[in-house]
Amino acid sequence: MLLAHRLPAACPSRVVLDHVTSRWGVLVLVALSDGSLRWGELRRTVEGVSEKMLAQTLRTLEADGLVDRTVAATVPPRVDYALTELGHDLAAHLLPLMSWIVDHADAIVGRDTARP
């Protein structure tokens, strides 16, 4: 079994789990799994994310070594975001989970709305 019987509060995996599985973190990682995107493309792909939350999420994922930010010296500057090798490795694990969620979301959400 991968996990011990205890899940210690001080375990560094908690920080990584918080960053990766945040509401926007998962969606940004999945969006970038097909290739690099510019800011506007990423914002359109991850519908509903505010500029502030997208910027914060990208900064966190970049600091974690999961996303790479490349600035081209053009006018105006072009900024592209892409997954790093570590980010691609993580996305390979997230994509099956997201596929499962998409396949079962209607049944799960429908179950929640059926409750009194």
Rank of each mutant, 00 (worst) to 15 (best):
V15M: 12
R78Q: 10
A10S: 15
V46I: 14
L7S: 15
R14M: 12
L86E: 09
A4V: 07
R111Q: 13
T21H: 15
L3S: 10
G65Q: 03
V75S: 12
L94Y: 08
V49C: 05
A82V: 01
R115L: 09
L32A: 01
L29K: 05
L2F: 07
A72D: 14
L17G: 14
A72V: 04
R6I: 09
A4Y: 10
S33C: 14
L94M: 01
E51P: 04
D106Y: 12
R6M: 11
L7D: 13
L54E: 05
R111K: 09
S13F: 15
R69F: 01
R78A: 02
R14P: 09
D18N: 07
V28L: 02
H88T: 12
L66T: 01
A63P: 00
E51C: 04
S22L: 05
T21L: 15
D34P: 03
L95H: 13
R78G: 00
T45W: 04
L83V: 06
E62R: 09
D89H: 07
A73I: 13
D68N: 07
P76F: 11
V15S: 10
L7T: 14
E85F: 07
V71N: 01
T70V: 03
S22Y: 02
E85K: 06
L2G: 12
V49I: 13
P116F: 06
A82K: 08
L94F: 02
S33W: 04
V20T: 15
A55R: 12
A63S: 01
L58G: 01
P76Y: 10
H93P: 02
E51M: 00
R69G: 04
E47N: 12
M53G: 01
R59W: 00
R38Q: 14
D112M: 14
V75G: 03
V71G: 03
G40C: 05
L83Q: 10
H104S: 11
L95E: 10
